[in-house]
Design a protein around this nucleic acid. Structure first.
Lengths: 268, 268
DNA sequence: AGTCTGCTTCCGCCCAGCGGAAGTAGACTT
DNA sequence: AAGTCTACTTCCGCTGGGCGGAAGCAGACT
């Protein structure tokens, strides 16, 4: 539709480095999975803030407990932020209700179990469980998987708006060679996911990892999340696992609605 | 040592409402487990900030994704904070390594399994798992249990500094009637915990919940966390469970040290 | 001794943040 | 229907907290 804007179509957030809070969060945003520990200089570099300014902000954040200084002098996210973060409904509501069900699935299969929601043009992994016998999976909680190359992602994409789908179709990055980068292939697959009620991704994101996923429904049967497992390639009984997932997802959906969490407002 | 300071022993944090970031975090701190959803007015009331000021801060925080406005107009912690929070080493490091071991314990006992670290004069629950067959436990992740009335807490207390112990002894709140409020009783029990290597708490925090806990060691055999289970009162084979816990804790300790996480700087 | 890179302190300019006042919207009372 | 709550939002002029260049400090590498 109104694709012609002055701002690029991507860029879900405006950096807003004008206000003090904006700058403070610029600093915090300098931290991500690849940059969990950083020196002051690194933060300054990544945020683009003058070193001095950065220094003051970092100190204030440390005083607030939002950042912590580690033994080696570098900084990392502090426990205050963590404690606040678990109050987010994403975590607290969904996880609290979903974990027992995920636990049950895990006991049946001993495969990694994960749950994800839509976050912008990605699938945000909200929770995952894995035992010592599980294969290493890249998707830890907080990870943001591509929508077109993961089981949970495909479920969300298939049930997403056409706007969302078109946006995703516009940039189908490849990860393994098995990754589907052709819209003509992907589109019918999404249709199949909607009709069959589950998604399947075979080494499309990482070699050696197959995933299955089913939708979780909220108010008005709207898809609010996806529940999936990740198994080694040599996939066992897909049919059986899908039905296990479906049973759990149904029970979970009902419980979420019952507990008044059928929306999970996922504003970015 | 330098126990005589000008600042009072309690009051781990200074409110510091002077700087903008200070005020911003005042707002965020208005949220806790009992106040996960709040109206603007409620936030203003709890922070003591003028309504207008609060209004502006809240809006900026919403723009940053640190807060979210729900359908009913109230505010809650946003996904940005959650995403940042899981980068905290508390969560990311400890949990990532510990979960598989916790999972294994859970499979053996089907009791709630939890892991906690020292946070001020409380035991901060970092991770917990529980299945659908587990009894409801008050201690969700982020909960801060009293040190003298929980298994994990007692482990940390027993291995804590004398300063810490004295501070805790000064206010032994009672929760169930089984709670130990007499220092003369508690002190020898802490000694026993150190010598025997595990703590036991029987309905001291909540009626119907017994817990067992063992220490997790970091560099230099310093106790950095506690691993425990919570079971219904009718405790089964304590001996067996303790040995299971000890085996897991040992393996976990080794792995933490191996991965260079033997400190877990828990600055408040 | 020289030169890195990384962190911290200082200080004067000035604009972003402040918050009282007034305006808007809905819900509940008389 | 007018009155009165409570809850939120917009406006705007004053001012003090934030800004960031410059300079100082400390360790590591040549």
């Amino acid at each position: 539709m109104s694709a012609q804007g002055s701002k690029p179509p991507v860029a879900p957030e405006s950096p807003d480095s004008k206000s003090v809070t904006g700058r403070a969060f610029l600093v915090l945003d300098a931290f991500d999975v690849e940059h969990r520990h950083q020196s002051l200089a690194s933060i300054a570099r990544r945020t683009g803030l003058p070193l001095t300014t950065c220094h003051r902000l970092v100190h204030e954040l440390v005083a607030q407990g939002a950042l912590t200084r580690t033994l080696d002098g570098s900084y990392e996210i502090g426990s205050k932020i963590w404690r606040l973060g678990i109050l987010a409904s994403l975590h607290s509501d969904l996880r609290e209700v979903a974990l027992p069900y995920m636990e049950d699935i895990y006991q049946l299969a001993n495969d990694a179990v994960q749950i994800g929601v839509l976050d912008g043009f990605r699938c945000l992994i909200v929770e995952r469980i894995a035992g010592s016998r599980t294969l290493e999976v890249i998707s830890k909680p907080g990870a943001r998987l591509p929508l077109h190359a993961s089981g949970v992602g495909k479920v969300l994409l298939a049930h997403g708006s056409t706007d969302l789908q078109n946006a995703v179709f516009a940039s189908l990055d490849s990860y393994t060679g098995q990754t589907i980068t052709d819209v003509a292939v992907l589109k019918p697959q999404l249709e199949a996911i909607k009709s069959k009620g589950f998604a399947h991704s075979k080494e499309e994101l990482a070699v050696g990892a197959t995933s299955l996923a089913v939708p979780i429904l909220g108010y008005g049967n709207k898809v609010i999340a996806a529940l999936g497992i990740v198994t080694p390639v040599e996939n066992r009984d897909i049919e059986r696992m899908v039905s296990v997932l479906k049973v759990s997802a149904n029970a979970l959906s009902k419980k979420l609605i019952l507990n008044g969490m059928g929306d999970l407002n996922q504003r970015v």
